[in-house]
Amino acid sequence: MMNATIAKLALQALLGRRRFYLLLAFPVLLIALVSLITALADGDAAFDILPGLGYPLVLPLVAILAASSVLGPEVDDGSIIYLLAKPVSRYGVAISKWVVALAATLTAGALPILVAALITGDSTRAWALFVGALVAGTTYSALFLAISAVTRHAVIASLMFVLIWESLLGNLFTGVAWLSIGQWGLRVGHELSAQLPDPANLTWAILASLVVTAVGVWFAGDRLRSFSLRGED
């Protein structure tokens, strides 16, 4: 299903000048901040940055940027039809693009979280958080890819999901954790280190992550199957 040519083109689009710097800014900022605080204060204080800022904000933002970069501009200006007018399964197109977005999310989102967490000391909790970030990053990238395939306002819609649903309402109502990708990841990470919270049922967290990932990518492919060329609006 994976198509190397499409993945290569998506990667080239992702690494095109400005986007790349914006994508790079997140991990640099995160690691610099955590290093600074670890040096000035102590590791535990610095670690709080990660569940407070790195995990709930930087990781999804990187995922949004990556997912919308591999699909958004091409859908926006219609040039995706050069890729779609080919005897290539549209699900294959979606999967290939998702793999690139996923790789970017994990490299620029999850990996820096691991590096930053390792800087703060305690490696068990660092690896636990990393596992959580892997789970959440995977699910996020699939969900945001699906959103990018549906609406031109994908970035804002995805941001609202993360910032308003997961962060704002998630902080007010604990029940939101059952429908929060970030919390599913944390729940999986909790298995490795009890320092991470235990917001939901483990089976549910794993199953929900898998389902959202699979359905997200499938849905993106299905939207591409019905991709219609519309006039300018």
Partner: peptide, 23 residues
């Protein structure tokens, strides 16, 4: 419609500009 295999027989030159300027 919804038949990707048909593109073996179609060559399409859209009016849209290429956005693959980096290639």
């Amino acid at each position: 419609w919804r038949n990707t295999e048909i593109y073996r027989q179609i060559g399409l030159v859209p009016e849209r500009e290429l956005s693959f300027g980096y290639l």
